[in-house]
Write a protein that binds this DNA or RNA. Structure first.
Lengths: 348, 348
DNA sequence: AGCGTCACAGCAAGCGCTTTCTATCGGATA
DNA sequence: TATCCGATAGAAAGCGCTTGCTGTGACGCT
């Protein structure tokens, strides 16, 4: 029914071992023999049996990429960059690896299950992107899993995620705290003193770090934060819309709104407009990430640009063993403040 | 070193066969035995060897999702919906399947290679999303591959992609032609007579169908199209920006610009604004897809909404055998015209 | 001429699991 | 009490491939 290595061997009049060696190309095979084998492969339309190969060789060519939300360009862009480096087909040199993107939906359980699934497949490498959930037991479970993966020879890389000490994982971390601080300082510099903050979901490292940066900036400038100035929500547009309405309700005198990310900021803009407020004349708005659409918002969004593509590419190369891990196995990647039209001096 | 089935069996004092049966749960095992085995699995922290299992059982739990550009929300949204249904971990019932997203980058070769890789992994199902490349030899190669996959028992579903006759693939197709026509008719209805069109890359089914719809509308209303009114480009914002500038150069009297998709439309809006033109007073703009950010554009984008999530979910269910394929194995999914602020009557 | 050296090719032993077929055992039935 | 049957458990044969080790001629060296 299906063509096997043995069939090819028979056709080429060589042993299965030879066919295997031709296909894997890590053992001397005479040119004429190789030629003959290749022809047989072609004629028979042979396709290697992945599982069998992985079993025998005790390795597979699967590389897992875990993302929190594949529908979010933040992850899409990183995944794309990672995958480009992993190779998949068309990548640069190296064996062909199947880079697979796994969507955890931000759920700790799914994250764990995917890791198990990848472990089960004996993945060659795993890249985890984006913020982690801070729930202690879960974090411990993930750490344990990562260690096990690393021990089993799977290269583990964290991209845009805080380091996981003692797991053997390489971490490329975004400086969310620094970015958050810089952003808010920019606003304060413009004269804002009453700033609302729309945070992401609680218990997420990204959420916490950005918020900490924001608060550090406030504190550094002697601004006492009103507890009502912070609202938590999801990392999407709708959440930003609702949260902004809530902020306005709590304190109509706010002159600036800082959002957890660009999507949230867009929702905030919509809410402000719907409330009859002008941006930035009445209220300034700032986002985070600098996703492609942010520059097209009207006014264009002041935000912190994160080098998503570059970080992803680097993570991909490290996962493939094509680039040295950073010293200490941890690298911090800084964002860049992008001042655009959505931020300006406060009214009055 | 690694824990195997045999280790678990030894620990639980049963045969490997029994352990396997407990794990797969399709054979009667006494409750107490099962209990004992499960405990051993737990204590040993056993993880099934996927390749070995796939080899022995001649099936795997991998499901491939091919997308043209994972950084594009169009695909991200579909992939997300598909994956949610495939299960992956956390999906509803059914065995746990590893839904993997493969990024072809729109390249025919990579598409083919990914299909081979999935075939090699003996994937349980494959979902191909988005438009296909129209290059004849390539189309034939893909068709052949799909047939082979289907023959090997892999369920093949096309989502947002034209049918592939005689391949055994189920197709859920978007009515791009109808949507394109409706959109342009809306513009014509507003009084526009000189409409620019920014098409996607040539040789893509999606590009062609949308353009055909546009032209059908023009023709139906007796409008003779100027050859300079159409510009081809990529499906991204920058391309839209450049193409719009080009259109304006060719014919400054255009009163409307129809874009291949929303990202392109956003780029078009930016170019128009930068050229000192107001939307829609001077030029109306229309997009396609209705991605989440489209409603936040200023003015919000008139576009054709495609039920990406719904289609993806359905494709996922069909791929899992959880929903009946449509009669004739082909279903056409219509878009819905969303009239918003970016379209209005022409000036004068 | 004699023999170590290469360069290749084949043998065969698994890799860790699934699954068919074959026991086994405690009733239930006659 | 002898027989049969359903419910379980085990033995063992692979699944298709990789790879360490073992030939085996052809060469080149002394």
């Amino acid at each position: 029914m299906t063509v096997t290595l043995a069939d090819v061997a028979a056709r080429a009049q060589v042993s299965p071992a030879t066919v295997s060696r031709v296909l894997n190309g890590n053992y001397p095979v005479a040119a004429t023999t190789r030629e003959r084998v290749l022809r047989a492969v072609d004629e028979l339309d042979y396709v290697l049996n992945g599982p069998a190969s992985a079993l025998a060789a005790a390795t597979s060519d699967l590389v897992g990429i875990l993302v929190n939300d594949i529908a979010d360009p933040f992850f899409g862009i990183m995944a794309s960059a990672i995958q480009a480096e992993i190779g998949g087909p068309g990548g640069r040199a190296g064996g062909e690896r199947l880079a697979v993107v796994c969507n955890t939906g931000g759920s700790p359980e799914r994250e764990l299950t995917y890791l198990t699934l990848l472990q089960r497949q004996r993945a060659a490498a795993v890249v985890l992107t984006g913020g982690a959930v801070e729930d202690a037991p879960h974090a411990a479970a993930v750490a344990a899993k990562l260690r096990k993966l690393a021990d089993a020879g799977t290269r583990v890389v964290l991209c845009g995620r805080p380091p996981a000490p003692d797991t053997g994982a390489i971490a490329l971390t975004f400086d969310n705290r620094g970015g958050g601080r810089e952003l808010t300082e920019h606003l304060i510099g413009l004269g804002h003193r009453r700033l609302g903050y729309i945070a992401g979901p609680e218990e997420r490292t990204t959420t916490r770090h950005r918020l900490e940066g924001h608060r550090a900036a406030l504190e550094a400038h002697g601004i006492t934060e009103d507890p009502g100035w912070t609202v938590h929500g999801r990392y999407d547009r709708q959440s930003g819309y609702e949260a902004t309405l809530e902020l306005l309700r709590r304190d109509p005198s706010l002159t600036a709104v800082v959002a957890a990310n660009d999507s949230v900021a867009l929702g905030a803009c919509a809410a402000l407009r719907d409330s009859g407020l002008r941006i930035p004349e009445d209220v300034s708005v700032a986002g985070f990430d600098d996703l492609p659409f942010s520059i097209d918002a009207v006014p264009s969004l002041t935000t912190v640009r994160l080098p998503l593509s570059e970080a992803g590419a680097r993570a991909g190369r490290i996962a493939m063993g094509r680039e040295e891990p950073p010293p200490g196995e941890i690298a911090t990647i800084r964002g860049e403040l992008m001042v655009r039209g959505s931020s300006g001096g406060p009214r009055k």
